[in-house]
């Protein structure tokens, strides 16, 4: 009883440190080198914000970043809308015809190699003779991220008591009203978390975007990738650091939102 369960043995501490180092050391090095004053990526030349300034003067990079943010916002919004609807159908629709097929098709993009998704979308857009650019990338990212939204919303929805909606109907709500006034407020945190997840996934993606984008509408990851092929400029480190910081913030908000949704109202102080 006296032994502390939480205390870590030297072995545990070592393996934890090694594991974390394996995951995060490259990122830490990248972040540190983003403040490097030297023109050479591998030589340390003292602390500086030079490459951050460089980025904010780089028109092409800024355009790509703006493009990425727009694509992420649009595709995340559409994916959230469709993904939530799919989750509602899967959880509330109980046993409709073709439900297993629907569920399987919904989750296929989760396991589909991105190259294949990207290529098939490219073929589709070519066949449709669609002009590739902002909208084709947005649509492609929607198909990629929708299933993630469904997973997040579905788990929340499944944990909701069905009788809540019945109670709302019993008290005078038609089914649509019951959903809007009771179910929706309770799953909003999950929907928000799903949106942010979709947003970051879209922001990260380079494979599908490179298949479906057109001239003059490169997203930030594509831009970075093509720059790196001509040799790594320290500016890339600065951009990457900002992207990491941005995504970290979004992920923290998303996880806080989903935590809030699972402990609805517990922390709310009585007035």
């Amino acid at each position: 009883m006296a032994r502390k369960v939480n205390s870590l043995s030297p072995f545990n501490v070592t393996s934890l440190a090694l594991g974390l180092a394996f995951l995060y050391l490259p990122i830490i090095i990248l972040v540190i080198y983003s403040f490097n004053d030297s023109r050479l990526v591998t030589v340390w030349g003292g602390w500086s914000l030079r490459w951050y300034r460089e980025f904010f003067n780089d028109r092409a990079m800024l355009d790509a970043a703006w493009m990425s943010l727009r694509v992420a916002a649009v595709s995340a919004t559409i994916a959230t809308l469709l993904g939530t609807m799919a989750a509602v159908a899967l959880v509330r629709g109980e046993r409709f015809r073709g439900r297993p097929l629907f569920s399987g098709m919904l989750y296929a993009p989760l396991v589909m190699p991105e190259v294949i998704s990207g290529l098939s979308l490219l073929l589709l857009f070519v066949a449709l003779n669609a002009e590739r650019g902002f909208w084709t990338v947005s649509i492609a990212h929607t198909t990629l991220t929708m299933c993630f939204v469904t997973v997040v919303v579905q788990s929340r929805l499944a944990s909701l008591d069905r009788s809540l909606e019945e109670a709302a109907m019993d008290l005078g709500c038609d089914p649509v009203r019951a959903f809007l006034s009771v179910t929706l407020p309770l799953i909003v945190p999950a929907i928000a978390a799903g949106w942010m997840l979709a947003f970051t996934l879209s922001l990260d993606d380079v494979v599908i975007a490179s298949f479906t984008t057109g001239p003059g509408s490169a997203t930030l990851p594509i831009r970075i990738y093509s720059e790196v092929r001509l040799g790594v400029k320290p500016e890339i480190n600065a951009i990457s650091t900002m992207v990491i910081a941005f995504i970290a913030v979004v992920i923290v908000i998303a996880s806080l939102a989903s935590k809030l949704s699972s402990s609805q109202g517990e922390s709310a102080a009585p007035l």
Binding site: D161, S163, L164, E166, A167, A168, M169, D170, L171, G172, C173, D174, A178, V182, P185, L186, Q264, G265
Partner: peptide, 17 residues
């Protein structure tokens, strides 16, 4: 929602929000 009966649910089904 149009029936003049109301139900008290076993687990109460109070709206948590």
């Amino acid at each position: 929602h149009e029936r003049p009966v109301n139900m008290m649910f076993q687990n109460y089904a109070l709206f948590p929000h």
